[in-house]
Computed example of a mutant assay.
Amino acid sequence: MSTPWLLYAYPWQPFPRRVIIYLRERNILSSLVTVVHVSDVQFGGKTPAGFPPKPPGSLPILAIPNASSSGDGGDFIYIKQSISIMEFLEEACNTGRYGFPKLPHPLTLPITVNGIPGSTAEEDDKQAASRALRLARHSELLSLASGLTDSWNPIRTFGSGAGTMRIPVAAKEMLGWTRRNLLAIEKWFEENGYDSAGLRWASDDDIGSSAEQGGQERRQVTIAEIVLFQFFDFTKDCYGIDMTLSSGKTVTDVYGREVLESYPRLKKFYEQFLTRPSAKRHADLGEVPHEGWVRSMTDWSEGIFDSE
């Protein structure tokens, strides 16, 4: 590409952060996609000098210069919404298109996939059926994970100083639905034999001696895993709440059913992803919220996170 693509973002906020983690995981350099740090709305929503103005719409926004554009404010093709941006970039990485680093093969989740009854014995057919099922499983996890961040908004709106009104009982009610989603993902991990062991970032020495010592090879993470981690990362780093912690008690869920509130697989997933360089927040790149906002975000009404 003659000019880099531009990712307009508030780097510390949840949806742009997904894409920034993705860029690091795929080793997509700034010469290919440059992150344009737009100042938060409270500070005027300004774009740094030397870049075209922020396009209309909520961030992140990927701006791709048209072939006829010089990159100095000419025509762009825009892709909006974080998941759509990552899926578009993933396709580029699968094919090596536009000069992006090519993945050796399309990534899949580390899960157990059983054959679909009725498929033919032909090897090509069985492999195609397995790929289709793995894609479906990835979509399942992606849908569940993206719903977590969406459901956080009413919790913080009604329960924290970052919201617009204090209605603790409403925040606690919405928290119940988020915890229901967490239990669904925990169950998904169990049912699909999900293995997060490879998420831990081994040192170069560990990888070099893996053959002799059984060390764990590094692996690339999928979009669904990035979105899931981003939720835990956002709630812990910005709002001071570790959503992988659970009471370990039998509680009443939003449907009045008794369920065991425990997420051991999610906790392991979060802890291992934290070891990856992509998970680190860099203050000089705008990835850490202003301390005044942190005070507001961590100012919670009492009783919201107490288990019954």
Score class of each variant (00 low, 15 high):
W12D: 04
F15R: 12
R18C: 04
Y22T: 15
L23I: 15
I28C: 02
V33E: 03
V35S: 06
Q42P: 11
T47Y: 14
F51A: 01
P53V: 04
G57M: 06
I64Y: 10
S69K: 05
S70Q: 05
G71E: 02
G71V: 04
Y78S: 02
S84N: 10
I85C: 04
F88D: 02
L89A: 05
G96S: 03
R97W: 10
P101T: 12
P104G: 07
P110M: 08
I111N: 01
T112Y: 07
P117I: 14
E122V: 07
A128W: 04
S143M: 12
L144I: 00
S146K: 04
R156E: 15
G161Q: 11
G161N: 11
M165L: 06
R166K: 14
I167G: 07
P168E: 01
L175D: 02
A184H: 02
E186P: 00
E191M: 01
E191S: 03
E191V: 00
N192F: 00
N192P: 01
Y194S: 00
Y194T: 00
R200V: 15
W201F: 15
D204W: 06
S209M: 15
S209Y: 15
A211D: 04
A211E: 11
R219G: 09
V221R: 07
I223K: 07
Q230P: 00
T235S: 10
K236H: 14
R257P: 03
E258I: 05
E261Q: 12
S262C: 13
Y263V: 11
K267R: 12
F269G: 00
R276Q: 05
K280A: 15
H282E: 12
D284V: 13
L285H: 10
E287R: 09
W293C: 02
